[in-house]
């Protein structure tokens, strides 16, 4: 990662760390929720922006993580103690396993490129939602209510704004740092080659299918983690967390923010959700219409994303930036 980009990311995180000075407890809870969406958006940016895989069903992993967390922390899995830590692990492992299995079907055998992948993941999202509605063990249509809050062994149940906010922020920073570090390894460089020239990457000896499988699995784990964090705050896991609607939203956040910069994707989710809070009451259904239109315009004129454009411009203004 380039130095200036790191500096900018650090500024953003410090900004988030200072926010509790100016906003109240209730708003902190809201922001914490939006930050879990931000982590979710980073998972999509990881496969879309870094590996060129356009996933229309990223919510299957988010929802999968949410249900795994709920089932474990509610003590519904026989033989497993109801623990937040175990829940978080399950919420990462299960979606990762599912993604890995799915990836073995999709990426091996001669290429399944962009479009196929998008359509298949879209289909899974729709089907997963319907399955969840019809599966009584996980609450069916009503979902699972009364999911306990996070309890990480320190400070008891995390319910108040400030501890929840900082816990989620810490997770977001750790996820960001780990992913950014990962992308600066040879693995990250190989991904880059894959995105830009799939054929050439294969020619250079990269095993494209394995690369895709690895990144898809990692992204699923991150999405699962964000789903688990979400449900621990929201206390309610419902089939909509798995489905098409949320998959759509995360794609919009990520596209508007910027798919090729993790921090921009994170900000995209938070900013859109904050804007939605203010505007959707005033605009009603017009809000989503406007968001859809904005999305189309952004795809046509700013394919790199609005926030990413801004950040890249700021980056150049920093001392030592390339002009």
């Amino acid at each position: 990662m380039k130095r200036n980009a790191l500096v900018l990311a650090a500024i953003v995180w410090i900004g988030f760390a200072l926010l509790p000075l100016v906003v109240d407890d209730w708003q902190l809870l809201q922001l914490a929720q939006f930050m879990t969406y931000g982590v979710f958006a980073m998972s999509l940016a990881l496969i879309w922006g870094q590996a060129g895989l356009l996933c229309f069903g990223q919510a299957i992993f988010f929802g999968g993580g949410a249900y795994a967390m709920s089932l474990v922390t509610m003590g519904l899995i026989p033989g497993l103690p109801a623990s937040s830590w175990l829940g978080l692990i399950a919420a990462m492992v299960l979606p990762a396993l599912f993604a890995n299995l799915l990836g073995r079907f999709l990426f091996y055998g001669r290429g399944l490129r962009g479009a196929h992948f998008g359509i298949v993941t879209l289909a899974i999202a729709v089907i997963a939602e319907r399955l969840a509605i019809n599966w009584e063990f996980i609450g069916g249509f009503n979902g699972l209510m009364g999911v306990p809050p996070l309890n990480l062994g320190i400070g008891g149940d995390l319910i108040d704004g400030l501890p929840v906010y900082y816990a989620i922020l810490a997770v977001a920073v750790i996820v960001f740092a780990l992913l950014a570090a990962m992308l600066s390894t040879p693995f990250g460089l190989a991904l880059n080659a894959l995105r830009n020239h799939e054929d050439r990457a294969a020619f250079l000896g990269y095993d494209n299918a394995r690369l895709k499988l690895a990144i898809f699995t990692i992204a699923a784990a991150v999405a699962g983690l964000s789903g688990a964090l979400f449900v621990a705050q929201f206390a309610f896991a419902s089939p909509t967390l798995l489905g098409f609607g949320l998959s759509t939203e995360v794609l919009i956040w990520t596209a508007l923010g910027g798919k090729s910069l993790l921090i921009a994707a994170f900000l995209g989710a938070v900013v859109v959700r904050v804007a939605e809070n203010f505007l959707s009451e005033i605009l009603g259904p017009l809000w989503l219409l406007g968001l859809g239109a904005l999305f189309v315009l952004c795809v046509i004129f700013f394919p790199r994303g609005l926030i990413a454009e801004l950040l890249l411009r700021l980056e150049r203004l920093l001392p030592g930036g390339r002009r």
């Binding site: 229309f56 759509t248 239109a293 999305f295 189309v296 795809v299 046509i300």
Partner: peptide, 18 residues
Amino acid sequence: RFLDTILATWGISIAIKQ
């Protein structure tokens, strides 16, 4: 811009639905 056509038409679908 192949992937962008998917995204753009998808954005259209959201807008039409709304």
